[in-house]
Amino acid sequence: MKKLNFLVILLAMSIIACKSEKKETIVEEEIEEIVESEVVTPKKVTMQLASKSDSNVTGNIVFTEENGNVSMTAVMTGLESGEHAIHIHASSDCSSPDGKSAGGHWNPTNTPHGKWGAAEGYHKGDIGNFTADESGNATVSFSTDEWCIGCGDDTKDILGKGVIVHAGADDFTSQPSGAAGARVSCAGIIE
Rank of each mutant, 00 (worst) to 15 (best):
G181L: 04
V35T: 02
T139I: 08
K43Y: 09
V27N: 15
Q48V: 13
E83N: 07
P112I: 08
S51A: 15
S95T: 11
K43D: 08
E65F: 08
A119S: 13
I190Y: 04
V62F: 04
I86M: 15
G78A: 07
S53C: 10
A118C: 08
T109C: 06
C186T: 03
I16F: 14
I61D: 01
A138M: 05
K23F: 11
A167D: 12
I190L: 12
A187G: 12
D170C: 12
G103P: 02
A102L: 09
E32L: 13
G152Q: 10
G150S: 06
T173F: 01
G78D: 08
D54S: 14
F6A: 15
I16T: 11
L7R: 11
A182R: 07
S101H: 03
D145S: 14
W116D: 13
A169D: 06
A12M: 07
V75S: 15
L4M: 08
S174K: 06
E21Q: 04
F172L: 10
E24A: 15
F63D: 07
I127K: 05
S55T: 08
S101Y: 00
S92D: 15
V62S: 13
I26W: 03
G160R: 08
V75R: 14
A74I: 02
A50I: 06
V75K: 14
E24P: 02
N60E: 11
S20Y: 06
S37I: 06
I127C: 10
I149A: 02
V57K: 03
D170W: 01
G104F: 00
H84E: 11
D98F: 07
V165A: 11
A132L: 09
G178S: 08
R183L: 04
I16C: 15
P176Y: 05
D54K: 13
K124I: 02
A17P: 01
P42Q: 10
K100M: 11
F142P: 00
S101M: 01
G114I: 01
S174P: 00
S55E: 12
N137Q: 14
G136Q: 06
D153Y: 04
G178W: 01
F63V: 06
W116I: 11
S92V: 03
T41C: 09
K115S: 10
V45W: 07
S95V: 02
G121T: 01
G152W: 00
E21V: 00
I34W: 10
N107I: 00
L79Y: 00
G68N: 05
W147R: 08
K19T: 08
S53H: 10
S81T: 10
N56H: 09
V27H: 09
A132W: 05
A50Q: 11
S177C: 05
V40D: 14
L159V: 11
A132S: 12
E134P: 00
C94M: 05
D171G: 03
I158Y: 02
H166A: 09
A179Q: 10
I86R: 10
I127W: 02
I15H: 04
G99I: 00
S177G: 13
T144Q: 07
G128M: 05
V8D: 04
N129M: 06
T155F: 07
G59D: 10
E65V: 03
D157Q: 04
P176K: 06
L10P: 02
G160V: 02
